[in-house]
Design a protein around this nucleic acid. Structure first.
Lengths: 261, 261
DNA sequence: CCAATAGTGTCTATAAGACACTATAAC
DNA sequence: GTTATAGTGTCTTATAGACACTATTGG
């Protein structure tokens, strides 16, 4: 019942790991403009037992002097070569039967990276999208693919499912959708993110009105050209330093997270 | 980058502890019916360094084969002799500077226990409320007392603040208020819980309408007597087995929690 | 011109809040 | 009877959704 008085029991305490569910938007490889946009996550192939050869979330043990969030960011950088546009703690998974090997408690984060940035790794057919990272044991999969839904190591399938639920919630009630886009975006692009994430269709007129009412969204004065119809306005989000999102828990829903790193 | 491949680094991994913020409603000790209802939490006085003599959240190291949730429930039982009416994971706190001694990652839960049940310990003036637990190092404090807001060990003050924010959120959007009451309750009692937790006043008529529209709430057919006005109806919540709250993440906002243990 | 999407206006259904009103107990 | 709270009815206002309509580009 003593708090932090733990040294004498250290040997019996479970191991601690940090993993990250990283979401990004991509079109199928045909890459024609009309192919549907989907949510993808990067996975790492396990090279040891248990679950050797199966895909798992990027993660690893927590180093002695590393904060949880920076460990998650490092998962991301190591796997994708990228920096997160959004990073938030998801949950601590601590069931005693999570692994057939030694017991591990996993603190899981979830992250958003922008569309174009996903080019840093190979997709599931092994074709590299760029030269950034060439690890054959890293690949991107659609979240609704059989590999993700049925084949993941450990309890990672359930973890992804929960992360997806959380993402949908945040998109609905918060304003994280644009973190999957570039700095400047049209309202239609934001709507498409909503539609992909929530797997639904939204009325363009009503969506526009609602989004334009949200604080921090400003017109850039620029327009997107090259489309075969009226050129839409480009928007951005105000620098969060200007419109500070409230200190500590209040609006963030987590004490120190929700950062645009 | 390997998941669960941690044995060789075990010695450098931080220690793992579980703590619990336990909320209950009580009136001030005068106990006359008119004294205001407030939120209280139990604290444990530290008997060792660091922060020796100061109050801290109940908690301790995670045993090797214990689940996170059962560790939290055990915090609760050991401190208060009670079983939680609601128990949910709050957050994993893992800053490297949380303790002047060895680094500890704390997975924190929050719990609700019912009003009458808080009699199992002493209050801050040392007067025991029952014979259940007689530990002089355990006491209940109002969450808005200086001891809780300014004097807690480690980062526990911020943790309580965040737990309070989460409680307010859950009360607003979810239906946990009745977990602070007995099995049968009047709508006015539920409203009082809302008012205490959210620190506001609510229109009785509108609150009633809103609550009666919530699923699972049923009349017992009984009335509360002994009041000096029209006797209010008593309600209860339907057995959650009958009205199952949805499998897994969906409605719960957490994968395995939100339980009425 | 047409096709396609951007962007506006407006009607409706629903829900939240304000608040008047009736009902039933203790005294 | 009075007082106090239980419980109902109803009006106003804000908001979400449906959907018609105009605007501006490429071809």
């Amino acid at each position: 019942m003593e708090f932090l008085n733990v040294s004498e029991r250290a040997a019996t305490s479970p191991e601690l790991a940090v993993s990250t569910v990283i979401f990004s938007l991509r079109r199928d490889r045909g890459a024609d403009e009309d192919s549907p946009l989907r949510l993808w996550i990067p996975l790492v192939r396990r090279t040891r037992q248990p679950y050797r050869g199966q895909w798992a979330l990027p993660g690893g043990p927590l180093a002695a002097e590393q904060s949880l969030q920076s460990a998650a960011a490092e998962n991301l950088r190591t796997t994708t070569g990228l920096v997160p546009r959004y990073l938030e703690q998801l949950y601590a998974f601590g069931g005693t039967d999570r692994s057939p090997a030694r017991r591990v408690v996993s603190i899981v984060y979830w992250a958003l990276v922008r569309q174009a940035d996903t080019s840093g790794a190979r997709d599931d057919r092994g074709a590299p999208h760029s030269e950034l990272i060439e690890d054959p044991n890293v690949a991107w999969f659609p979240v609704d693919s059989p590999e993700v839904r049925e084949q993941l190591a450990f309890d990672h399938g359930r973890i992804v499912e929960y992360a997806l639920w959380r993402l949908r919630n945040k998109v609905t009630y918060g304003k994280v959708a644009h973190r999957l886009l570039g700095d400047r975006f049209t309202l239609a692009q934001v709507r498409e993110v909503y539609e992909v994430v929530l797997d639904t269709t939204l009325d363009p007129a009503n969506f526009r009105r609602q989004l334009k009412g949200s604080p921090g969204l400003v017109e850039t004065g620029e327009h997107l050209h090259g489309v075969k119809h009226r050129p839409p306005k480009l928007y951005r989000y105000e620098d969060p330093v200007t419109a500070l999102p409230a200190p500590a828990p209040a609006a963030t829903a987590s004490p120190q997270e929700g950062s645009r790193v």
